[in-house]
Each structure stands twice: as structure tokens, then as C-alpha cells.
Amino acid sequence: MSAISPRSTRPRFDVNGWLFVGPALALIATFMVFPVLHSLWMSFQTGLGMRLSFAGLKNINRLFNDPLFFTALTNTFIFFLVQVPVMLTLALVTAALLNNPDIRFRGVLRTAIFLPCVTSLVAYTVLFKSMFVANGLINTTLINLGIVDTGIPWMTDPFWCRTMIIIAITWRWTGYNMIFYLAAMQNIDRSVYEAARIDGVPTYARFAFLTVPMLKPVILFTTVTSTIGTLQLFDEVSTITGGGSAGGAAGPGNSALTLSLYIYNLTFKFAPNFGYAATVSYVIVFLVAILSFLQFYAARERKA
């Protein structure tokens, strides 16, 4: 009687077990599993609105001949290839500096840098838009500082429009990623640093050869989640460009057209083509699946 292990008292998955997990599983099946399969089925169909007919691989064919799709794909890739490394480097450096217990006002600085996380994507986008208007705050400041002679065409030039979006996203998410790095750094044994310091290893080398390798799993995690987030970029570009308001381009030269925005426009702005929009959405599914696979792979390596 005395040796009751937790295992032996663990109840079987009877009526009670199902009552506990049932509601969540039913909801996930209805609102996640069924729709994602439905959208796979739709990607083989074509037609306007609800009148769909089987089209085989026609949609995939259309995909390869659709310049707007390639614009959206290119933009999405530009956003994450530029934005994710810049943001994560910034977050990593900030975290490394803040991790020093001798820094004064550590708590205040950390809170301040984390603060952008509390804003909604839509609200901060509107704020950035208002700062980047033609003769607005940013351009006036840059001219006054002598950095540029004339205002930068943030809203009318494709390159600068993308730059503005990248700056905005970086502002919103750097502190968020920094928190992950700080948490991971707190788990690193300080004596390793002490030993390196006594051996005369300079600060930057300690950062590059001690901190970064030890944080590899977290860096990978943040890279994957940031990339997946950027692949689904919608709220910001939709708010900046007015959601590609009926017929209009999404930003100068469609420079802010992301895959998600294109799918939204295909479905709800242009003549609604659900089948083709579903095909485009599966491009994101595949990209996310590949990335998630990499993440699981890396997580397994972490355990080993």
C-alpha cells in the first residue's frame, strides 16, 4: 500500500478524459483541420465566388504565369531576408549589453525596449505612417541633422516604402526577441565568462565565441518564428497601403504587396477567385512547413 506510484493512480482516458480534451479537439478540428483541408481541395478548383469547378493543376499553372504573385513572393522574401537578420542582430547585441549586472537602470531600460510589444500592429503602423509623411517628423529631422538634403520619398518610392516597413517591423519586434535572448543568457554559467575574462579574452570575442554559440538554439527559434511571422505579414502592409483599396496598387509599384495581402485581395477585393487564392495560400503553407521542419530538427539537436 505504501508504494503507490503516480503512474498507478493515473486514470485511463475514459469518459472523463474525453470530456476534458473533447471541446478543444472538436474546435480545432472544425476551425483548423477542416478549413486547411478544404482549402487544399479548393486549390484544385476554379471559378468566381462560390461557383467552383474542378480545374486540376490549372491554378498552379496560373501561379507560374502571374507577375503579381511573383511580386508578392519577392516582396515577402525581401522583407524577411533583410528585416529578420537586422532585427535579431540588434536584439542580440542589446540583450548582451543589458545582461551585464553592473549596468545601471537595467530594469527601466529593459522595460522601455520591450514596450513596443504592447501596441497593436495596426496602431503602431498608423503611428509610423504619420511620422514618415512627406514633410513630416522623420524627413524634417533628417534634413535638420544634415543627413539628407531633400526629404526621402518614403511613401512614393518602392525602395523607401519597403525600408519604412522594415524599420517599423524592427521597432515592434526587437524588444520581444531581446527578451528571449536575455532569458537564455541568464541560464549561461557566469563562471565561463569569468574564466575567459581572466584569460584575457576581449569582450567582443567573448560575445562572438562564447555567447552566440551557447545561444544557438534560441537564435534558431527566434529566426524561425520571425521568418514565419514575416511570411504572413499582413496588418502592417494593409494599413500602410489602405489594403490595396479596390483596384489600387499596394504601395508604390506594389512594393508592399505581400503574399497574405495578395490572397486577401484575390478573395475580397478583386473578382473573388477562391480557388486560385487557396493555391497561393498553399505556397505559404509549404514555406512555413519547411521552416517548422527546420525548427523541429534543431530542437532535436538541442536535446542531444
Binding site: 478549413p35 486547411v36 482549402s39 479548393m42 478573395t267 503553407v285 512555413v288
Partner: peptide, 11 residues
């Protein structure tokens, strides 16, 4: 892993 873009039309 399912991105919302793949759910919005069926939903």
C-alpha cells in the same frame, strides 16, 4: 504550423 492565410477563405 497552419498559416492563417490558408484558413481565411474556408473559414
Amino acid at each position: 504550423m497552419i498559416p492563417f492565410a490558408a484558413l481565411m477563405i474556408p473559414l
